Simulated assay, not measured.
Amino acid sequence: SPRTRGHGGRGSVARLTRLGSSSAKLSSAQARHPFDRRAGRAMKRMEWLSRARQLVPPLAKERHKGQAGKVGVVGGCEEYTGAPYFAAMAALRCGADLSHVFCSRGASGVIKSYSPETIVHPIFFDGDGEGAEVLTAEEEEARLRRAVAKAGEWLPRLSCLLVGPGLGRDPLTLETTARIMRRACELEIPMVFDADGLWIWNQASFDPAPFCASNQTVVLTPNAVELKRLSARYVSTRGGTGTDAVAGGEGDGEDG
């Protein structure tokens, strides 16, 4: 009937009007979203830049070289020379004045050739590679002490110490590094552990208790595999948090 057709026509027009209005709102929202996302990202970027500026010391005529930070990097062996170099250069580009790299003799020349800005100390002997010397226990101990003594001359001057980039897993190098770590701990130098520096934390002979004292600043930066290894040693499988295990220096196993 005309009434039905008329009613249906008005209803169709009303529905089309509502659909058109919804589409317009949707299009308007879609048009705003990219801008809103860009604005949000820009605001976050400004916030992070503001925080970063607080970490970078301002330039001033009264300052002298070294007051903006002296960073030590323990790492670098014959096979891995890039990681300690990039770590040292990253510190310089973030505002530190000096970067020291404590590495093996086989890596020192290569790292020096990358840039004259890093100060390179070849304190480690390359261990069990081709042509390596066979040392007695007394000779190994003498080399350990010499290497630790060389590093120890510089430790009191450092603002912080990064341990691990390109360090390798030569037993003599790891033992030397562990002793340097303990010396830095005694001096209360803030430390960051990465890569093979975290491997030392997994050794049965390593005691983490001094590094967990309240006066120590220690940062561990494990990836997924390294975190799994650390958890296997320090986090209890019986539901504990692992805090007691780390503080007590307990080893592997269900109670570790």
Rank of each mutant, 00 (worst) to 15 (best):
P208H: 00
D244R: 07
G106V: 02
L162C: 15
V163T: 10
E130H: 10
T177I: 06
E79I: 06
R169L: 11
R93F: 12
L26I: 09
R45N: 14
E141P: 01
C103R: 02
L172Q: 15
L230D: 11
G9E: 11
R179L: 06
C160A: 13
G75N: 12
A68C: 11
E47G: 06
L158Q: 11
G168S: 12
E62F: 06
C160N: 05
K61Y: 12
W154A: 11
S214G: 09
T241M: 01
E153C: 03
G152W: 02
V13G: 09
R182E: 10
K25P: 06
A149M: 11
A91F: 05
C94H: 15
L162A: 13
L26F: 06
R18D: 13
G11P: 03
R179A: 10
H100K: 02
N223R: 03
P34V: 13
G8I: 13
G152D: 08
I111L: 08
V218E: 07
D36C: 07
A68E: 09
L187K: 15
T237A: 10
A96Q: 05
S23I: 06
R179W: 00
S104H: 05
A29Y: 04
M181S: 00
V71E: 02
G164W: 01
G76Y: 11
P58S: 11
D194P: 00
F211L: 14
E188L: 14
M46D: 13
A224R: 10
R146Q: 14
K150G: 04
A90Y: 06
E141C: 05
A42L: 14
G72P: 09
G127D: 15
F206H: 10
I119Y: 02
Y234N: 07
G127P: 08
R229C: 12
R37E: 12
G164Y: 01
A42I: 13
F193N: 04
A90S: 15
V71S: 08
A147M: 02
P156R: 08
V110N: 02
S205E: 15
P116E: 14
R5H: 08
Y114V: 09
D244T: 10
L26G: 00
E139R: 15
V120R: 00
S50N: 04
G152K: 03
L49P: 01
G82Q: 09
